Amino acid sequence: MDTELFTDLERRVETLVERYTALKRENDVLREENGRLLQERDAVKSRIDGVLRKLEGI
Rank of each mutant, 00 (worst) to 15 (best):
R11W: 04
A22L: 01
L38R: 14
R25Q: 09
R47V: 08
V13Q: 03
R53H: 10
L55V: 13
K24L: 06
T21C: 04
M1A: 07
T3K: 11
T7N: 12
L38W: 04
T3Q: 10
L30H: 09
F6Q: 11
K45L: 14
L55G: 08
D8L: 12
E14H: 03
R19E: 12
E40A: 14
Y20S: 09
E4L: 07
R19N: 11
A22E: 05
L23A: 07
T15F: 01
I48S: 08
R41S: 12
L38C: 09
K45F: 05
K24Q: 13
L37N: 07
R19D: 12
V51L: 14
V17A: 00
E26H: 05
R25C: 01
D28M: 01
R11Q: 11
D2Y: 08
L30C: 07
T15D: 03
T7A: 02
L52E: 15
R31A: 10
T3S: 13
Q39D: 15
K24P: 07
A22M: 02
D8K: 15
V29C: 03
N27K: 01
L5H: 06
E4S: 08
V44Q: 12
L37G: 12
L38N: 14
G50V: 09
T21M: 04
K45H: 08
E14R: 06
K24D: 15
V44T: 13
D49F: 06
E33N: 12
E14T: 10
L23M: 15
R36S: 07
